[in-house]
Amino acid sequence: MTTSHTLVVEDLAVGYKDRAVLERLDLAVPPGRITAIVGANASGKSTLLRSMSRLLAPRAGAVLLDGRSVHRMHAKELARTLGLLPQSPVAPEGITVADLVGRGRNPHQGLFSRWSAADDAAVAAALDATHTAGLAERPVDELSGGQRQRVWIAMALAQQTDLLLLDEPTTFLDVSHQVEVLDLLTDLNRARGTTIVMVLHDLNLAARYADHLVALAGGRLHAAGAPADVLTEDCVRTVFGLESRVITDPTCGKPLVLPLGRHHTSGSPRG
C-alpha cells in the first residue's frame, strides 16, 4: 500500500510579526515515503511543518494537499488525511493515557456517531505499537518525558491518517527509544504506505531512516533528495557551519557524518 495523496509547498513565505522565517520555498513531499527535515536552529524546520499542517498562515504562496490549499480545507476533513505531532504538545490536566490516545479518533467522529469497535481497535493498536498499553489508566501528567512522548505518538497513530507530520518525535527519548520510535514509523510506512514527514536533529538518524532529506538554511531550501545526494561535507558545512567527514554507514549504506573539532581531527594529540 502507498498513499496517493500529494503534499506540495509552492513559493511559501511565512513569518512572525516583522520577522521572516521562510522565504519563497518550494517543496514536493514524495508520496508513500519517509522525509526528514534537517537544519540548524532557527532555520525554519518547525515553521515549515506548522505551515504544512495549516497551523501557520502563509504570507505568500500555498501548501497544497491533493491540489487544494490546506488553509481553505475544513479542519476535520484535513485531519482525516493529515496528522500532526507538534514539538511541545500539552495534555489537558488529569487526562489519562487512554483518553488522550482516544482523542486521535476525533476526526473520524460525526456529529451523531458513537464510539465504535473500530475506534477501540485503533486505540489498542496504537498503544501496543508504542508499548504504552500498560500506561493506559495512568494520568499523562504523571509520566516521564519519554513516556509522554510515546503516548503522543500513539495518539497520532490512532488518528490513522495517510500523511503524518512529526516535529522532533525523538525529543526526550534515550538512544534506544529513539531507534525504537523510528523503527515504529518505518514499520508504519512499510505496512500502510503512510507518508511521513519529520523534523530530526540527529543527522545520522535522519540519513538512516529517511528516503528523502530536506536541508534548510536561513529559511530557504538548500538541498532536497536522497540522503546520499544531500548529506555531503559541503552541505554540512553550509547548513550547520560544521566541518565533518562523511563516510558510508557500514550498517545500512547511508551517509554517516563524523563531526570534526579542534580536539578530534586527524593527527590531533590526545589528552
Results as ranks from 00 to 15, higher is better:
F172R: 00
A75Y: 03
R68E: 11
A118P: 03
I247C: 12
T171K: 03
P86A: 05
K45W: 09
K45N: 07
T6C: 14
A75P: 10
S176H: 10
R114P: 01
T251D: 15
L100D: 03
G145D: 04
E168H: 02
S43C: 13
D66R: 06
V38I: 15
T195P: 03
T186I: 02
V181D: 03
H212W: 15
A118L: 10
E93H: 10
G32C: 11
E142K: 08
Y16W: 14
G44P: 08
L205Y: 13
E180D: 14
T170L: 00
V101D: 04
R237S: 12
L49I: 15
G267R: 05
T170D: 00
H74T: 03
M52V: 05
E168P: 03
S53M: 08
Q159L: 01
P227E: 13
L216G: 10
R59W: 14
V239G: 04
I196A: 06
G145V: 00
V101M: 02
L56A: 10
R72T: 09
D66N: 12
L55E: 14
E137R: 09
Q147L: 00
T232D: 13
H131L: 09
D11E: 13
V239K: 11
A226V: 15
S244H: 04
T96V: 05
V179A: 12
L165I: 12
M52S: 07
A224R: 11
V38E: 02
P169F: 05
I247H: 13
E180Q: 13
A13C: 15
V181N: 02
T251W: 14
G253V: 14
I95R: 05
L78S: 07
P227H: 13
P89E: 02
A117W: 00
P92K: 00
L65I: 09
E23T: 15
P107Q: 06
A125S: 05
L188E: 01
L7M: 08
P58A: 05
E168T: 05
D167G: 06
A42Y: 07
A20I: 10
G261W: 13
D183N: 15
S244I: 04
V9Y: 11
T3A: 13
P139V: 01
R148D: 01
V123M: 01
A75W: 07
D141I: 04
R192G: 01
G146W: 01
Y16K: 09
T161N: 00
H74L: 07
L143N: 00
H131N: 06
V179T: 06
T81R: 15
G39E: 08
R80I: 03
G271Y: 06
L82T: 05
L258P: 04
E23K: 13
G44I: 07
T132P: 02
A20R: 15
R103G: 03
P259S: 11
A228V: 15
T232G: 14
V179R: 04
L185I: 04
T132Q: 00
D234F: 13
G219E: 09
K76I: 00
L25W: 07
H177V: 01
P269M: 09
D229C: 07
A136L: 00
G193W: 03
D120Q: 11
G44Q: 05
A126E: 08
R245H: 15
M73C: 08
S4E: 12
V179D: 04
V14A: 14
A121F: 01
